[in-house]
Design a binder for these strands. Sequence first.
DNA 1: CCATTATATGATTGATTAATCATATAATGC
DNA 2: GCATTATATGATTAATCAATCATATAATGG
Lengths: 103, 103
Amino acid sequence: MNKTHFRAEILKALGQPTRLKIIDFLRDGERCVCEIFPAIDEEQSNTSRHLNLMVSSGILFRRKEGVKIFYAVKHPEIFELVDLATLIMTQEINGRHKLLLAA
Amino acid sequence: MNKTHFRAEILKALGQPTRLKIIDFLRDGERCVCEIFPAIDEEQSNTSRHLNLMVSSGILFRRKEGVKIFYAVKHPEIFELVDLATLIMTQEINGRHKLLLAA
DNA sequence: CCATTATATGATTGATTAATCATATAATGC
DNA sequence: GCATTATATGATTAATCAATCATATAATGG
């Protein structure tokens, strides 16, 4: 895999609503699957798949403790990146609003 | 569309190799389609579709000049966001390398 | 040892995506 | 007005994706 594909994989892993909800829920630190899936209101199996995908693409890491598996965001820059997306979104919404007002 | 979906759409728009190549090529400023598609080595029609998608998701804007259409990145934060993805990628590669060395 | 709890995974389905070829549209210079 | 250049779009195809249901695995407490 070349670097463009690697970068794309990271961004793609973050560019999905269910996965973004997981990232947001993990802002306060690690959580086990049994906490995550009710919090984001998704099925356990679906949540598990998304968690695994994010581990594979370097977004999350996993820690086992007894029967529970805790997931956490691997790099603090992930949050910065997501926050930038939020900022861009806000600017977009404001820009569109201004256009509507000007029309 | 709610905010989670909006954020996801922005990240997803950036999380595709062909589109990342376009963003990289637009770092120096606006370019017309006829410059972009040879630079990234993709078909004109495919390039056009990706450009349109990024306009729709708020990543790029378009300016018409005669028969040419110039595209440019709409928010400087887009570059910051992509650069963060590159940083995360680098950390991942280094991390994996260290693990291999330690093993 | 068994029942329970936590997590992962196989199989399936419908939806979305990226790429391609062919063609349409639209501006320009002659 | 016509040929040329630049761009967009319809139709198609193969691939990937997200979600779901059912089931498997694995650790724990009693």
